[in-house]
């Protein structure tokens, strides 16, 4: 009966609209490595709340515009 949270992000799209900001530039603004940005975009890593806010600040948009959350019903079996 549990629900699974699916967290996705729009970092790739936001980078494109931010004058095609590079992953390295975003990494520098957020204070992380480029590998972390690559992992985030590939959906291989979920950031901490602190990093999520830093990324949204880098794009000057609200956090919910960067990260989206949807629920999926967990399989009963």
């Amino acid at each position: 009966m549990g629900e699974k949270l699916i967290i996705t992000n729009n970092i790739r799209r936001l980078r494109f609209f931010a004058n095609e900001m590079t992953q390295a530039e975003l990494a520098q603004k957020a204070g992380v490595t480029r590998q972390t940005i690559i992992a985030l975009e590939a959906g291989k890593y979920l950031p901490s709340l602190e990093l999520a806010f830093k990324i949204s600040n880098a794009f000057v948009v609200p956090i919910e515009e960067v990260f989206e959350c949807s629920t999926q019903k967990a399989d009963a079996s």
Binding site: Q28, V32, T33, R34, Q35, T36, Y45, S48, E50, L51
Partner: peptide
Amino acid sequence: FLQTSFIEDER
């Protein structure tokens, strides 16, 4: 690239 590859972050 160099600056953002040799730091240690939360990941």
